[in-house]
């Protein structure tokens, strides 16, 4: 839900906005005599306005992050909460050692990577097809565009309730249809089946259903971003290419797709990050059944079911470490393409 933006785009916006170019916000360059007074006043106003935001970020993001590091490296359980701050911390590496030794951790990590990767690729692909199909104006395009956003706007609980009903083995429409028209002998438990053989190939059914659900919900956002980018492709390039005899496929391959590369890469990264830590979608659909135990569900289980704060914090820290590496890689990659 929360899009970031590539550094190059940020720089360009900064350049495009007159305010930042003029060097002193909306405040016009003052005569030299008063300029230090004005700068000081603007400095004070800036801090005054931004301090509530910083207070929120500090109290509810930076402080908790410091704490999660402390928790990850100490033995602390839910029952210890009332004594927090009154007793010395017992430092230990035990949480990380246990995580690295546990089958559950590595299993969850693999499931999460698979889930996030497939979701990211799928929602980008669906978004791309939609954006290209709706690129040229036609009657009713505005309405179609708006309707395509419905899955994205829908509360996740409502969406999951609908999907669970749809896939229900007793009265769900998918099983009813399959048995009535496709000759299925027995109903398929889409949300509880770990693997099923389809023409001899083992398919992770429940995981794929969750991925499909996530693509359904998140592709509209990719569609929005790609549409915005497509609209700013200058028409002259395509006209020139058409004059040179480029056909539709060449136009797509050599003109449009290269223009979309940066935003596509960003969308892939963001969707991977969001899906990597997604809890709601998987928990609401399967509660982790059918081998869909993703990392976020593991964190929740360690915290709530096993009442082990230290272990939950360690799992969370390992997750952010992986995402951090990914983010650094992305920044390095986009720097390099910016330069070339």
């Amino acid at each position: 839900m929360t899009p970031g933006r590539p550094p190059s785009a940020r720089a360009r916006i900064a350049r495009a906005s007159g305010a930042e170019r003029s060097g002193a916000g909306p405040f016009p360059a003052a005569p030299r005599r008063t300029s230090t007074g004005r700068a000081r006043r603007e400095n004070r106003s800036g801090w005054l306005l931004v301090s509530p935001s910083l207070a929120v970020v500090g109290l509810v993001v930076l402080l908790p992050f410091a704490l999660v590091v402390v928790f990850g490296f100490s033995e602390i359980r839910l029952v210890d909460i009332p004594y927090l701050g009154t007793e010395p911390i017992e430092w230990s590496l035990e949480n990380f050692r246990r995580a690295a030794a546990s089958q559950a951790f590595w299993g969850a990590l693999w499931t999460t990577v698979l889930y996030a990767g497939l979701t990211a690729a799928g929602s980008l692909a669906v978004g791309l097809v939609l954006a290209l199909a709706l690129r040229r104006p036609f009657a009713g395009r505005g309405l179609v565009r708006a309707l395509l956003l419905v899955p994205y706007v829908l509360p996740v609980v409502a969406a999951a309730t609908i999907w669970k009903t749809m896939l229900n083995p007793q009265y769900g429409v998918v099983n009813a249809f399959g048995r009535a028209y496709l000759g299925w002998d027995t109903p398929v438990g889409f949300l509880s089946t770990t693997t099923a053989d389809v023409w001899g190939i083992p398919v992770p059914v429940a995981l794929l259903v969750v991925v499909l659900f996530d693509i359904w919900k998140s592709a509209p956002l990719a569609f929005l971003f790609l549409t915005a980018r497509l609209q700013s492709v200058p028409g002259e390039i395509e006209e020139a290419a058409a004059l040179d005899g480029a056909n539709r496929r060449q136009n797509l391959r050599f003109i449009l797709l290269p223009q979309l590369r940066a935003v596509a890469l960003l969308l892939l990264l963001l969707r991977f990050i969001w899906s990597f830590q997604s809890f709601d979608d998987v928990y609401l659909l399967t509660e982790g059944a059918g081998s869909t135990q993703v990392m976020a569900i593991q964190v929740y289980t360690e915290l709530v079911t096993k009442a082990d704060i230290g272990s939950a914090a360690a799992f969370g820290l390992l997750m952010s470490l992986i995402l951090g590496v990914l983010l650094v890689g992305y920044v390095a990659l986009s720097r390099r393409t910016d330069e070339s």
Partner: peptide, 9 residues
Amino acid sequence: FPGIVLAVP
């Protein structure tokens, strides 16, 4: 920032 990490603290 991954939100789930901050859920614990």
